[in-house]
Design a protein around this nucleic acid. Structure first.
Length: 219
DNA sequence: GCCAACGTTGGC
DNA sequence: GCCAACGTTGGC
């Protein structure tokens, strides 16, 4: 599902700024925009600063193309940097559009033998047009998206480090259930409350708690 | 490979 | 604008 190529493509960013938006609902692009508030800059809500991004580390063929892209594949790219292309879900896209350079994201391994958090990466380039939407050869080609009004965006991410120990979904889930019952940082974690979202936000508390698990015994 | 959850599409 | 059918995600 997610990325595969390297980064480059620096030149211009285009990034149409406004343009279409979220789901449907009445007002159109409302939703999260409501909060905003201070944020002198320009656009939407800056609320989140940490992220979790899913990708599949095991080979799987979609239209004859292998979509495998695990953390080792990111690490192997030049500069250990790649573009997170192929996101074709509006909520996930909108979260990517909120990402700022320097923010941290967990690299999550999905749809595999052992799903879970494998490592940490850095957002090194803010959102810009995902060129794969116009590429008929690409698995994620989108015939409904036109170059003069692109639908899909991507960011560039750089490998930062592996987790000191792999954090399996099963363990995170145990904490989630425990925290849901008795209170705790993972009680509302998007990984469980928004199961299919491939790019999701984490609060600083969630992020820090998960990092703290590295130094604990597996649950 | 199964299938639940849930996002998207399209008829009306 | 509703909602059923359909397609995809992703754990197990």
């Amino acid at each position: 599902m997610p990325p595969k190529k390297k980064a480059r493509v620096s030149k211009r960013t285009a990034d149409s700024g406004k343009d279409d938006g979220t789901v449907s609902s009445s007002g159109g692009k409302r939703k999260a925009a409501a909060s905003a508030g201070k944020n002198g800059k320009s656009s939407e809500s800056p609320q989140y600063s940490h992220w979790l991004m899913k990708s599949e580390p095991e080979s799987r063929f979609e239209n004859g193309i292998d979509v495998k892209f695990g953390i080792e594949d990111l690490k192997a790219l030049p500069d250990q940097t790649g573009c997170w292309d192929g996101v074709r879900n509006y909520q996930a896209r909108n979260f990517m559009r909120q990402m700022k350079e320097g923010q941290l994201a967990f690299f999550y391994h999905s749809n595999c033998k052992e799903p879970g958090i494998a490592g940490v990466m850095n957002i090194v380039k803010e959102s810009y047009v995902d060129h794969t939407q116009f590429d008929k050869k690409d698995v994620h080609y989108d015939a409904t998206s036109k170059p003069d009004n692109p639908k899909w965006s991507m960011v560039d991410v750089q490998y930062q480090r592996m987790m000191k120990r792999f954090l399996p979904l099963s363990e995170l889930k145990k904490y989630h259930l425990q925290h849901r019952a008795t209170g705790g940082p993972l009680k509302d974690m998007a990984l469980f409350t928004r199961a299919r979202l491939s790019v999701q936000p984490l609060t600083a508390e969630e992020f820090d708690f998960i990092l703290s698990l590295e130094d604990k015994e597996a649950l």
